[in-house]
Write a protein that binds this DNA or RNA. Structure first.
Lengths: 224, 224
DNA sequence: ACTGCATTCGAACGAACGTTCGAATTAGCC
DNA sequence: GGCTAATTCGAACGTTCGTTCGAATGCAGT
């Protein structure tokens, strides 16, 4: 089994026309693939990865069943592309937002806000990421798991900083995973018509979590 | 479509032999069905509802493919039976444990402990309940949703009591759903070899959640 | 041994599955 | 217009799916 990331399409893409000032930011191929990924995300969200058939994806994207296979070589790789792109983007945005912010409580709040904003703006993709986490196998699964681990480590770092600065006592592991639970569970209940926007929700969950973590017994300072 | 709950097997079960002092608490039929449900729970947990085939269930339970249909009339009803039994049991146990406890903080802690204890003692069943919540359709889905709603309302009641007694200010909806998220997410990460038992975990999550909810700004008492 | 019902099974059903292939169509470039 | 490669498609492949059916087996009461 080859590396899931490396392109398997050997034939080169169309070369960009000479002097055109980039009327489209990506090749036609990339655009079409992105469209298919978007439609497939909706279908996977609604019917689940196993429950969605290639014929469902064909219908949703308006392309013939066989035509889909010009853009990816298997249903599993399609899910992989969705998950990898979604997860990479959220990590990338997080890093950009954390840069230049020093206060450790503020940094945790940024983590929560970034997660919830992206979650609510891309609900379908995030549900597919959360809910179909076990659907990929071997190489595909490993690559997504690596991104997940990086994301997890970042959050652990933020909380360990907070803990050290303020001399708090709690299990970082339980705290981080509880926070992920609070945030990721949203896809099971969020209703844009009754629930607030991402910023308010991030405030509310941030309050709940940070108070819960910071109201704990501090270490006495004669403990080292 | 008939009521999913009512038995469709018309033929009566074997009548209990006359004077025997209940050597088995249930009929042979019920025992065998329970065995099949237990094996099916494991398979659904491992491969997902859609991903598990009737032939997988046949293999796991050691019964022929056709034989399974003597005990239930469809794969969907099998999932329904698992979800309904699991959810009913957890609600029933919760009610028993809450009876006679007056302190409202203690009652919330009991809710958390009951949930986590059952979750960790029946991980496979609870994962099937949490993860396959959308797999049932129409009548089947409605009946499980009714139990879920009752369970949700109980938790809302506990938190509203706490809120009133202590004059707290927070969104009950967000708090309850955040708590469910913290607890239900466990099935994605809990590892019995590294994580503590249910009681410690309930303490830790109870601290995190209750501090978060109670450390909030209290209403001034001249507000009514 | 015989009867009647509960239980189990092998074999098959039609439908739907993911994927493939060769031909048709389209779009950029001389 | 004609050439070439990129793109799309209809039709089919072999496999697996959930479910059904009639026959076999087990077992209790007579």
């Amino acid at each position: 089994m080859g590396n899931p990331s490396t392109a398997t399409r050997i034939s080169g893409r169309r070369h960009r026309s000479s002097g055109v000032p980039l009327p489209t930011p990506a090749t036609r191929y990339d655009q079409r693939l992105a469209e298919i990924l978007a439609h497939a995300t909706d279908v996977f969200c609604k019917k689940g990865y196993e429950g969605a058939s290639m014929r469902d994806l064909s219908r949703a994207s308006g392309m013939s069943l066989a035509g889909l296979y010009y853009y990816f070589e298997s249903k599993e790789r399609l899910l992989f592309l969705i998950q990898k792109h979604t997860f990479s983007t959220i990590v990338e945005r997080l890093k950009a937002r954390l840069a230049g912010v020093g206060d450790s409580e503020q940094r945790v709040r940024i983590f929560i806000l970034n997660h919830l904003e992206y979650f609510l703006a891309n609900q379908a993709a995030m549900k597919v990421l959360s809910h179909e986490a076990e659907a990929l196998k071997n190489g595909f699964a490993a690559e997504v798991a690596a991104i997940k681990r990086e994301y997890y480590r970042i959050c652990v770092g933020l909380l360990d900083d907070l803990k050290r600065e303020r001399g708090l006592q709690f299990s970082t592991r339980i705290a981080v995973l509880s926070l992920f639970g609070m945030m990721n569970w949203i896809y099971t209940w969020h209703n844009p018509r009754v629930d607030a926007d991402a910023a308010s929700m991030a405030d509310e969950m941030g309050d709940l979590f940070l108070r819960g973590v910071m109201a704990g017994t501090k270490k006495r300072k004669d403990e080292h």
